[in-house]
Amino acid sequence: MAWLDGERAGLVAAVGWAREERFADAAVRLALYLGEYLHWRRYFDDLIAVAEAAREAAHRAGDRLNEAIAWDHLGNALRATGRAGEAIEAHTRARDLHQATGDRHREACVWNNLGLALREAGRAKEAIDAYTRARDLHQATGDRHGEAGTWDNLGRTEHEAGRAKEAIEAHTRARDLSRAVGDRHGEAIAWHNLGSTLREAGRAEEAIEAYGKSLDLLRGFEDWYHEGLALYNLALAHESAHRPAEARTAYLQAVDAFTCANAPTEAAQVRTRAAEQPEYLPTLTPCPHAPE
Rank of each mutant, 00 (worst) to 15 (best):
W3L: 03
A61R: 15
W151C: 07
D223T: 00
T265L: 08
K125N: 10
D152W: 00
T265H: 06
E266P: 14
A117H: 09
S178Q: 11
E89D: 15
Y232I: 06
L114S: 03
V12D: 02
D46T: 00
Y43M: 13
E89C: 13
L32K: 10
R83P: 04
E239I: 13
D256N: 10
L194A: 08
E227V: 09
G155I: 13
Y280W: 12
N76R: 03
W71S: 11
A57K: 09
E166W: 09
F44Q: 11
L38P: 05
V15I: 10
E126S: 01
R135N: 04
R60I: 05
W111L: 11
E107Y: 06
R248K: 14
R41I: 15
N112H: 15
C287I: 12
A108W: 07
H171R: 04
A204T: 03
L118P: 10
V12W: 01
R243I: 07
L65P: 12
Y225H: 15
L217P: 01
D223M: 13
R199Y: 01
H39W: 02
G75Q: 00
P286H: 03
Y33K: 06
D63I: 01
N76Q: 05
V255M: 07
A134T: 12
R8K: 13
R273P: 10
P282W: 11
Y232M: 01
A180Y: 06
K165E: 12
A87W: 04
H59T: 06
A210G: 12
A161I: 07
G35T: 05
W71Y: 10
P278L: 00
R64I: 15
W3K: 01
A58H: 03
R248S: 11
N153M: 08
A121R: 14
P278S: 00
L11V: 05
G149A: 08
V50F: 14
A26R: 10
E205Y: 04
N66A: 10
R123K: 13
T92Q: 11
H98T: 12
E160P: 02
R60C: 06
A84L: 00
A70E: 08
T150E: 12
A254C: 11
E205T: 01
E279L: 06
I48H: 08
N66S: 01
A13F: 11
V110C: 08
G220L: 06
A190M: 04
P288H: 07
W71A: 11
E120F: 04
L74E: 05
A9Y: 00
E166S: 01
A90C: 02
D25I: 11
A134Q: 13
I189S: 01
L198W: 09
A14K: 10
R163N: 01
E7S: 04
A18E: 15
A117T: 02
P288Q: 14
E21K: 13
A275W: 11
E187S: 02
A80V: 00
Y37Q: 09
A247C: 12
E209W: 07
A263G: 05
R219L: 02
